[in-house]
């Protein structure tokens, strides 16, 4: 059986908010290491990779690997019924037809349980290689969100160029062009999460669909910083770390010049 108790139930809402615009269903894989999900958007252009490590839960029991296929839209509806401060317990049997969600209020004066039907999802798992990124940019997640939103007001595709001087985001649309350069600022008085840091072995440049990058920024409430990893001619990774728990990562295929 699988049973996991999460003290910060609000975290689950944030995780679901970060994927609900991209996928409509997904297999949550319960394993002794934690709860994970890998899923592609309907156009198979991007890939979501979530990991919530077992150590991050107050109680975690998983005897064997269990794929828990869930409709994300319905899951969002159920988790919405939890208070943001509620403790959430997720429970299911080894071959589940249903998953139980138990919500306990912080003061233990209200307990609710919801049962949701599982579904069989035949999805293709992809092997994401462990790779060294040619360029890694760490920046405030709110700044990245703002930047993607601003770029999307002008064009559909953003070109991201990373050099040791900084990261240049450029787009072109019917009304004109936009360029935003973010420079590394590791030496100021800023707190660590307010800094922009760039690590590169060589300059990298590629174009990406802003529609997807904008969807990824729905994960902003999960982390004060976001990390972009780029390798020439490979998908970009956009990573939001979840403190003491794991991550939400998005991979997006680059645009290819015809």
């Amino acid at each position: 059986m699988f049973e996991a108790r999460l003290l910060q139930g609000g975290l689950l809402k944030k995780v679901l908010d970060s994927i609900k615009d991209i996928i409509t269903e997904g297999n949550f894989d319960c394993s002794p290491n934690g709860l994970s999900l890998q899923a592609m958007d309907s156009s198979h252009v991007s890939l979501i990779d979530i990991l919530l490590e077992s150590e991050g839960f107050e109680h975690y029991r998983c005897d064997r690997n269990i794929p828990m296929g869930l409709n994300i839209t319905n899951l969002v509806k159920m988790i919405k019924c939890a208070g943001s401060e509620d403790i959430v317990t997720i429970k299911c049997e080894d071959k589940p037809d249903n998953v139980t969600f138990l919500f306990e209020s912080k003061d233990n004066d209200k307990i609710s349980d919801f049962e949701m039907k599982t579904m069989t999802i035949d999805d293709e798992h992809l092997l994401v290689p462990d790779q060294t990124y040619t360029a890694v940019v760490k920046m405030p997640s709110a700044e990245f969100q703002r930047l993607c939103r601003d770029m999307a007001a002008i064009g559909d595709t953003v070109n991201i160029s990373v050099t040791k001087e900084g990261v240049r985001f450029s787009t072109t649309g019917d009304m004109g062009t936009a360029n935003i350069t973010v420079r590394p600022n590791p030496s100021g008085d800023q707190k660590e999460e307010e800094r922009t840091e760039v690590q590169i072995t060589e300059p990298v440049s590629a174009g990406f669909a802003l529609r997807y990058l904008n969807s990824f920024t729905k994960a902003t409430p999960l982390s004060p910083t976001v990390t972009l990893g780029m390798v020439p001619n490979l998908p970009i990774v956009v990573e939001y770390k979840i403190a003491d728990m794991g991550h939400v990562r998005y991979y997006l295929a680059p645009k290819i010049e015809d």
Partner: peptide
């Protein structure tokens, strides 16, 4: 115009 390949054209099936 730039084309949009799928993610599976970069990552092999697991």
């Amino acid at each position: 115009m730039a084309g949009q390949p799928t993610i599976a054209s970069f990552f092999a099936p697991a």
